[in-house]
C-alpha cells in the first residue's frame, strides 16, 4: 500500500477582482514507503503549491484546496488542524529552497533543532541538546557543538541546508518533501546535499518527494518521476523509462535543456522556448500548445487526458501527439510532422 496517495489534488487561488487561478489541477500520484518520487517542471508549474498543499502550509485565506491527500490511510486535508500540527515535523517533514531565509535569523541553530525534538519527541532540554548534536553530526556538519550555538548567518549556504535537513529528519519522518533543496547552492555543494539526502532516505527508509526543475537531479535520485506543466501532470514514468523514452514534447524540451559535458564548447543550451506566461487554460486545449513543436489541430480544441503512453509500462502521458523515437511504429519523431493518429492511438 502506498504511504502517500495524492488524488485529484486541486489548488485554486482566489483574489478579489481577479479570475480564480488554478495553480494545481487534478494532480494524482502515489509515494510508496522508502520510495523517491520526483516532481519536475519549470518555474510556476505548481510544484511548490502542490507540496505546500500536501503539508497544508498554504495561507489559510485566498485559496481553495480540493481532492484527497491520504497519508497512511488518513486524509490529511480533512484532518483537524491540531492533529495536522502533531504530524508535521513528526510523520512528514519538509525542506525548502532558500536555506538562509528558511532559518530564523535571531534564533540559534541549536534551538531551531531542539524545538522539534522537544515538540514531538517530548525530550528534555539536555537530551534534546545531545540529540541535536548527533543530528548535526549525521548531516555532516563539522564541529557540531560550536554550530549549535551559532546563528544562521554564521553558517555557509551548504551548512545551512544541512542544518535544515537535520531539523527535518530529527523525528525520523516517514515522508520527506524537499522543495528544490539545492537551487540556492553552488554546484559542488548541490551534489553533496543530494548525496546526503539520498543516504538519509536510504538509511532511514524515508519516502522522499523531490521537487526540482532540474532533470539532472532526478536522474541521480528518483525512482518515479512526474513532469508537471501548468498545474497538471503531463508525463509520468519511472526514472529509467523517462530518460530512455521520453514522449511528451515538454519533457523533451526539459531534457534538451540539461547542460551536457560532452557538448561542443560554445554550444548553447536549448531551454524550452517561450515561458509559462504563454499558457492557455487546460479547459478546452493543451496548455502547452503555444510552445509546442508538435502541435496538431486538436491541441487547441480539446484537452488531453493522462493516459497510458504508447511506449513503456506504467508510463503515462498527457498529449495528443507524443514525440516517439524513429521506428517506434506509432508516429514520427519530434518536430514538424504532425501525426493525427497519435491521439487516437493512446
Amino acid at each position: 500500500m502506498p504511504l502517500l496517495e495524492v488524488e485529484d489534488l486541486g489548488v485554486e487561488f482566489r483574489r478579489r477582482g481577479l479570475e480564480p487561478f488554478r495553480a494545481v489541477d487534478g494532480v494524482s500520484f502515489d509515494v510508496d514507503p522508502g520510495q523517491t518520487v520526483g516532481l519536475v517542471g519549470e518555474s510556476g508549474c505548481g510544484k511548490s503549491v502542490t507540496s505546500l498543499a500536501i503539508m497544508r502550509l498554504l495561507m489559510p485565506r485566498g485559496n481553495r484546496v480540493t481532492g484527497r491527500v491520504s497519508f497512511d490511510g488518513t486524509d490529511l486535508l480533512r484532518l483537524p488542524i491540531r492533529d495536522m500540527r502533531d504530524r508535521r515535523g513528526r510523520d512528514l517533514a519538509m525542506i525548502f529552497q532558500d536555506p538562509l531565509s528558511s532559518l530564523n535569523p535571531v534564533i540559534s541553530i541549536g534551538l531551531q533543532v531542539t524545538e522539534v525534538l522537544q515538540r514531538h519527541r517530548g525530550m528534555k532540554q539536555s537530551a534534546a541538546r545531545a540529540e541535536a548534536r548527533d543530528l548535526l553530526d549525521q548531516v555532516g556538519i563539522p564541529d557540531p557543538d560550536r554550530r549549535l550555538k551559532e546563528y544562521p548567518h554564521q553558517l555557509s549556504g551548504g551548512m545551512r541546508q544541512r542544518a535544515l535537513i537535520a531539523m527535518a529528519v530529527a523525528c525520523r519522518p516517514r515522508l520527506l518533501i524537499a522543495d528544490e533543496p539545492t537551487t540556492a547552492l553552488d554546484v559542488t555543494i548541490q551534489a553533496q546535499i543530494l548525496q546526503l539526502l539520498g543516504t538519509l532516505v536510504r538509511e532511514n527508509g524515508t519516502a522522499l518527494i523531490m521537487i526540482t526543475h532540474d532533470l539532472g537531479v532526478v536522474a541521480g535520485l528518483c525512482d518515479e518521476v512526474n513532469v508537471l506543466y501548468g498545474g497538471r501532470i503531463v508525463e509520468r514514468a519511472n526514472r529509467h523509462e523517462l530518460f530512455a523514452t521520453p514522449q511528451h514534447p515538454y519533457t523533451h524540451g526539459l531534457l534538451a535543456s540539461i547542460p551536457r559535458l560532452d557538448a561542443p564548447a560554445g554550444e548553447r543550451l536549448h531551454p524550452v522556448q517561450g515561458s509559462v506566461s504563454d499558457n492557455i487554460p487546460w479547459t478546452s486545449a493543451c496548455a502547452f500548445a503555444p510552445r509546442c513543436g508538435n502541435e496538431v489541430d486538436r491541441c487547441r480544441s480539446a484537452s488531453p487526458e493522462l493516459t497510458a503512453a504508447p511506449l513503456g509500462h506504467g508510463h503515462q502521458l498527457r498529449c495528443f501527439n507524443p514525440v516517439l523515437p524513429d521506428g517506434a511504429g506509432v508516429g514520427a519523431t519530434g518536430g514538424s510532422a504532425p501525426v493525427d493518429s497519435a491521439g487516437e492511438a493512446l
Binding site: R85, A93, M94, F96, L103, N104, E115, R119, L164, M167
Partner: peptide, 26 residues
C-alpha cells in the same frame, strides 16, 4: 509571511511557540 515562519509551521510547532519565538521576536 517570512520563510522561516513557514519552516516553523512545517516543523509542527505549536501556534504559541510560533508566535512568541518566531514571529514576535523578529
Amino acid at each position: 509571511n517570512e520563510d522561516y515562519v513557514r519552516t516553523a509551521e512545517a516543523k509542527g510547532l505549536t501556534t504559541q511557540v510560533i508566535r512568541r519565538r518566531h514571529i514576535l521576536r523578529n
